[in-house]
Write a protein that binds this DNA or RNA. Structure first.
Lengths: 149, 149
DNA sequence: GGAATTAGTTAGCAATGCTAACGAAGTATA
DNA sequence: TATACTTCGTTAGCATTGCTAACTAATTCC
């Protein structure tokens, strides 16, 4: 059998199925987020600060693909809850430096563990080979997403 | 450590990376949705009606993991735009039957093609083997998600 | 020094999520 | 059969999250 034909999948078909799988996967795990008491935008912004380190409001907005006014309000809510704190930038007084507090770090990590554990619980039912395929796929996707033009 | 576990990836680590990849993938493709002129909830609800066929409001709300009042409003917006139509159920007058119109079908398919083409354009840069890995991963995920307890 | 640019905020609108409370219709029961 | 309970969808009212327009303050450019 001509394996080049058989093995290599069509990019559009793979895109379609990956797209669908990603949607359904996230829809599932997102249920776990209710436990955090935060809205999805607050949770996601906090996550960027925890894993990406301190940054300005504009950078955070860009990372979240949201406009600055939207992020301004999300950050204000996180500050009210003492999950994020701001300091001023000595070099440029227009800028602010946003940083997750210890409380913010703790809350995020706890929620994240819930999500991952929930998903991992399902993946544990797979064979080692299947799990390997998923692991490799995640890596390929990760690289592709980082190099997105 | 155990000897026979060499090839087997850790479920939690894979879950973590899959989770992250899914988030970033959807964040990317979602940008294409602006062209449709619909909000994300309307687009998603319409998608369920197009691919899942006609159904009642409760079923649609359940499929979207949203409460009935929320779906009631989303459907009202879709009806105003003539993308969805409702008929009454002869057997049970409490129920309504929601169905995507031809206009709704067309709009959704167009937007979907945009999303998929955008993603496929990136995947085409991969080798056949990588694409194949992604295809198998999508299938494994699809089955896992369907059997989610 | 003054104009243009940049960073962030405020105001106001639309979409999307929720719960509570309701009406209408179907089902069960006394 | 009459009454109570359940189910389906809607309405009302609130919070969150997205946007653009317009603003202030600070920095940079000429």
């Amino acid at each position: 059998m001509s394996e080049a034909r058989k093995i290599s999948a069509d990019a559009a078909a793979v895109a379609d199925r990956l797209h669908s799988a990603a949607i359904h996967l996230l829809r599932r795990v997102r249920r776990q987020d209710a436990a955090s008491g935060l809205g999805p935008a607050q949770l996601s912004a906090l996550s960027v600060l925890v894993f990406g380190g301190p940054m300005g409001l504009g950078a955070l907005a860009a990372a979240e693909q949201v406009r600055p006014p939207t992020m301004s309000r999300i950050v204000a809510a996180l500050e009210r809850q003492k999950l994020v704190e701001r300091t001023s930038d000595a070099r440029d007084a227009r800028r602010i430096r946003l940083r997750a507090t210890a409380k913010g770090q703790k809350l995020l990590q706890k929620g994240r563990r819930l999500r991952i554990a929930y998903l991992a619980g399902q993946l544990e039912k797979l064979t080692g080979k299947e799990l390997d395929t998923l692991g490799r796929a995640a890596e390929i996707l990760d690289i592709t997403l980082r190099n997105w033009r």
